[in-house]
Amino acid sequence: MRCILANEKYTGDVIFQKTYTDDSFNRHINDGFLDQYFMPNHHEAIVSHEDFDAVAALISQRATEKGIKRGSKKCQQRYAFSGKIICGECGNTFRRRIHTSKYGKYVAWCCNTHLNDTRKCPMLFLRDDDLKIAFTTVLNKLIYSHKLVLKPYVAALKNNSGDESLVRIQHLERLLEQNTEQRETLTKLMAQGYIDQVLYNSETNALLAQANNYRADIDVINATMTGDSSKVFEAERLLHFAERGSLLDEYNEELFERFVDHIHVYSRQEVGFVMKCGLTFKEMI
Rank of each mutant, 00 (worst) to 15 (best):
I195F: 11
P40E: 00
G12T: 09
L199Y: 11
G12I: 02
I59R: 13
N213M: 10
T226Q: 08
N201H: 14
S267F: 02
E89C: 10
K141S: 14
N159M: 06
T64F: 04
K102E: 00
K132R: 11
A63P: 02
L239N: 04
I221G: 01
Y200L: 10
F125Q: 13
A6L: 10
Y37K: 05
Y106K: 11
V274L: 10
T185K: 05
Q77P: 00
L255A: 01
N160R: 10
N7R: 05
K151Y: 02
R78M: 07
D13A: 15
F135R: 02
I218R: 03
F135C: 06
K84F: 06
T280H: 04
D219W: 00
N160V: 02
I218H: 02
R96V: 06
V265N: 01
H114E: 10
H264S: 02
R62C: 00
D129M: 15
I86V: 15
L176V: 02
L207G: 04
T137Q: 05
Q210V: 04
N212W: 05
G12V: 04
T180E: 11
N159H: 06
E177D: 11
A6C: 08
G162S: 14
E257Y: 03
Y37F: 15
N222S: 12
V107L: 12
W109Q: 03
F233H: 06
S165Y: 03
T180V: 07
H146I: 05
R244M: 00
I263V: 15
D196M: 11
V167Y: 07
D117M: 00
K18N: 15
V265F: 02
F81L: 10
Y20P: 04
G67P: 08
L279E: 13
G91Q: 10
G91R: 10
S72I: 03
G245S: 14
E173N: 12
V149T: 06
I4Q: 05
R127N: 15
D13C: 05
K66Y: 09
F52D: 01
S24G: 00
E234M: 04
N112M: 03
C75R: 15
G91P: 09
Y79E: 07
S246L: 03
T224R: 07
I98W: 04
G91W: 12
D249K: 11
G162F: 13
E270Y: 03
I85V: 15
K84S: 09
K120I: 00
I133H: 13
F241V: 04
H264W: 12
R62W: 01
K188L: 08
A80F: 06
T280R: 14
K141L: 14
S161V: 05
K147Q: 08
A56N: 12
I15A: 08
I263R: 01
S48I: 01
N112W: 07
Y144N: 14
I86G: 03
T226C: 05
R119D: 10
L142Y: 04
Y79R: 12
Y153S: 01
K9W: 07
E184Y: 01
M123D: 07
G88W: 09
G83C: 13
K158G: 05
